[in-house]
Computed example of a mutant assay.
Amino acid sequence: MKLPGTIEGLIKAQNDVDSTAFAAYFTEKATVSDEGSSYAGRTEIKQWIQQATEKYRMRIKPLDFHQTGSMAELTVEVTGTFAGSPAVMQYHLELEGPSIYSLKITG
């Protein structure tokens, strides 16, 4: 499966527990929706991913990827210290150039 550099980098940053690198893949005004909460801007996104990764010791493995224009869907297997691990989740992405403008996680 061929992934765009932005998506490969996002996966690597999460698996490396590098919240600074993870947040850098988003635009300044990006939003993330996960588990009923929303986060806006790189600072909030960095704090969210750092807390979630530390709490659940998450690692993600890409399973499938589709992109049409600026919209993309990444299916991942998420493992960690949470009930139901491993779980398959969908990352619904809106891209803006080489950056992520929005991410909504479902699954």
Rank of each mutant, 00 (worst) to 15 (best):
Q50E: 05
G84N: 14
E54T: 01
M1P: 06
S38C: 03
A24T: 04
E96M: 14
T75K: 15
Q51A: 10
Q90Y: 10
K29W: 06
F22K: 10
Y25S: 04
E44Q: 14
I105V: 04
M1S: 10
A72C: 03
G36W: 03
T6L: 02
T6S: 06
I49C: 00
A87W: 02
M1V: 06
G41Q: 09
A13S: 12
P4M: 02
E73P: 14
T106D: 05
E35S: 07
K29A: 07
M1I: 03
T31Q: 04
A87K: 15
G107P: 12
S33E: 00
T68Q: 15
F26L: 02
Q14R: 11
F22R: 09
K12W: 00
A30E: 01
E73V: 08
S99P: 08
V32T: 00
F65T: 04
E94I: 01
L74G: 10
I60T: 00
I7V: 05
Y56Q: 09
E96C: 12
A30N: 06
M89L: 00
E54Y: 14
V78C: 06
H66D: 02
E44A: 11
M89K: 02
S19I: 01
G36V: 00
M71F: 12
A21H: 14
E35F: 08
T79F: 13
I7C: 01
M1H: 08
K55S: 10
H92S: 04
L95W: 05
Q90V: 03
V17R: 12
V32F: 12
M58P: 14
E44W: 14
G36R: 01
R59P: 07
G84Y: 10
D64I: 03
H66M: 01
M89W: 03
E94Y: 08
Q14L: 13
P86V: 10
H66S: 07
V88G: 03
G36I: 01
E77I: 08
K29D: 09
S70G: 05
K29Y: 11
K29V: 04
G9K: 10
P62G: 03
G5Q: 11
Q47V: 02
T31W: 06
K55P: 05
K104R: 14
M71S: 10
G97Q: 08
T43A: 11
E28F: 11
E54K: 13
Y101I: 03
I105R: 13
A24D: 13
S19E: 07
K55E: 00
A23W: 06
N15E: 04
Q50A: 11
S102A: 13
Y25N: 06
A83Q: 07
N15H: 04
Q47H: 13
Q51E: 06
R42E: 00
Y101A: 13
P98Y: 07
H66I: 05
H66N: 05
T53C: 13
V88P: 05
E96Q: 12
S85N: 01
L93D: 07
F26R: 07
I45F: 12
S37D: 02
F82Q: 00
A23V: 04
T27M: 11
L74C: 02
A40H: 13
M1N: 10
